[in-house]
Amino acid sequence: MSVTVEVSNLIKQFDGGHVRAIDDVSLAIEEGEYLVLLGPSGCGKTTLLRTIAGLEQPTSGDVLIDGSVVNGLPPRVRKVAMVFQSYALYPHKTVLANIVFPLKPEKLPKQERESKARWAAELLGIDHLLDRKPRQLSGGERQRVALARALVRAPHVFLLDEPLSNLDAKLRASARDELKRFQQRVGTTTVYVTHDQAEAMGLGDRIAVMNHGKLRQLGHPVEVYDDPADTFVATFIGSPPMNLVPRDGTLVGFRPEHLLPAAHVSGERVEASFHVDRIEYLSGDRHVYGTVNGIGKDTRVIARLPATVTDAVTPGESHPFAVNVDKLRFFDAESGERSEPVRVDAEHG
């Protein structure tokens, strides 16, 4: 059974009120949704997850699960299951005993407990590991054991706190795929915390971007990437981040992949002289660093040129580059918030 989760005007303070880890956050998580809480270290995302779980109590505001306020209720009563970064497996117990452990307080017969554990292990492809101890497992296998231990309780909500952070880059990519397919199979509402934007973009049905305890933007991955709500989101999401060029009290933003040699940009466009300092070759792309003049005045930017753009771009020289007008985004120079488009001189290519 999948359920909805909602937080309403949630505030969580520490240190006698001097530290506000969650600052008036409101959001609703839809039934069966995979919501990712994304932000830098210390932004409040893990505190928000722990407050939903019942491991922290809100200073004010409400947590609702399936329409009922659950403030003060322990995690087991909330029917949530949390997987931590460390996995928190019992080293002296077998995989089977680790998975069975959360069922012991439910006073189920041993055979029924083990049957549920074997079902969860089979679903996650670790049924052949049930007799092993955690020290005999790889990082990816330990992660699956932690998921099986959470799944066996048939929770209404999964809460995952950076469960892939201890894996190497190659294993992390495959584990992301496994996590997404697993959640789609079971259909359980899932809240996932990460500081890794690749995980957020790859896993989330929607992404909630947080900073300094505040919710900065909530939306689908493509929406957050294409139309950031403010300069924090614009520069936190994307690698390389969005370029921001000052112009008449406004910041003009554009993604590095949209700054291209002028010959490759058709339609209504803004042209600029791009003085190239250096070039990095990464995974078939070229990251071109330099100074642009024309969109704004002498501002350092990055262009990302795909392998299909073979134009010669030489460090130490200036080249005509351009950006489609519809790829430009505008932000208030003081507040950093998204603003209405302003006129930028354009040419038709």
Rank of each mutant, 00 (worst) to 15 (best):
D298A: 12
F182M: 14
A173L: 08
K327R: 14
V77T: 15
S239V: 14
D127M: 07
L89D: 01
S239Q: 13
Q217L: 04
I207W: 01
Q183A: 08
V193L: 07
P91F: 09
K116D: 06
Y289S: 01
L244E: 13
L251R: 13
Y90R: 10
R149I: 14
G249Y: 03
V222L: 09
D345W: 03
S273L: 09
S26G: 04
C43D: 07
D326Y: 11
A312S: 13
L215G: 04
V276A: 03
H264W: 02
V191S: 07
G238I: 01
R113V: 05
G125K: 11
D24K: 06
S2Q: 14
L215I: 14
D332K: 01
L10D: 06
F330H: 05
L218F: 07
D285L: 03
T51K: 11
I29W: 02
E317W: 03
A150T: 15
V292H: 01
R278L: 11
V145S: 05
V70C: 03
L103A: 08
P256D: 15
D285S: 12
H348G: 12
V25I: 12
E31D: 15
L167D: 14
G219A: 04
T188P: 14
H156L: 09
G17V: 13
A120V: 05
A121P: 02
V80R: 04
D345C: 04
K170M: 02
L73Q: 12
A21D: 03
Q136I: 09
Q217H: 09
T310P: 06
Q197C: 06
K116P: 00
G336H: 08
A307V: 15
T235L: 01
P315I: 15
G72H: 06
P155T: 04
H264L: 07
T231D: 10
T4R: 05
G202C: 05
L179P: 08
